[in-house]
Amino acid sequence: MRKLFAFFKRFQVFLLFIGLQSLSLYIYFTFLSFPKTQIITSTNFVTGKILLAKNDVTKLFNLSNTNLKLQQENIKLRQKNPISLIQITRKSVKIDDTLFHQQYEYIPATVINSTFDKRNNYFTLNVGSLQGIKRDMGVFSDAGVVGVVHFVSEHFSIVKSVLTKDINIDVMVEKTDVHGLLKWDGTHARFGKITGISNDLRIKKWRKVVTRGGSAMFPKGIPVGKVSSIASIEGQPLWDVTILFSEDYRKIQRVYVIKNLLKTEQEKIESQIPEDIIE
């Protein structure tokens, strides 16, 4: 009897251990696809405040670099301003503004926490639902695409970055319109992969890769990177395309969140496509 009791007592500890272990692993593995709990993420109030305080210190380290980037972006935009363009013919008609509806709005944000050496890397932003952030919005920076908003609280949001296993942004090689899905194999933060490109299509090295703009998350033409190497996959009629990201995710700080004003309209009309009948 005493032996049984001792055995049970020992088993009790083991049960608690298994319980806690499976709880934490359950949270870890389900968060990838279905985020539910807010309390253990960096979007909760306390950790958000801690990260903001941390960012107040660390943002100063990269200040000159960030300013330089901002200046370069400003130059690009300034060159497109009508003031710096010469009008060649006097007959040209001024563009009617009603012809163009605004489709994308951009919300500026700061990355207050990021990793790059994990298998799945998430970035925490200092904007949340109060600033109009919703799940599945695209995020990009001045140099390239960053990721997709995965989880939102009132003041903070978590971005599932490009450095995640199942990011699946649809991208294309510029000028050739060859397109595939963006993947990351989890080893190096500068290199990604494109899958689903058939090997009868010709791709040149160092061609630019940009977003395709099909999924209502990103507009067309946001830079992603450059094709750095092409290899064939054995047994499959596909290219194994490796790309060099144009953004260095190890140093990322300032990003923009994309608000697609026509998203509901696009989703509504796409939901009317009849699903394939499975035989």
């Binding site: 692993l25 949270i27 870890y28 968060f31 253990i40 950790t47 990793t115 998430y122 978590i158």
Partner: peptide, 12 residues
């Protein structure tokens, strides 16, 4: 985990 976005890895 809650600060560094690992959702349970460190806890495990």
């Amino acid at each position: 985990d809650s600060i560094s976005n690992t959702f349970g890895l460190h806890a495990s």
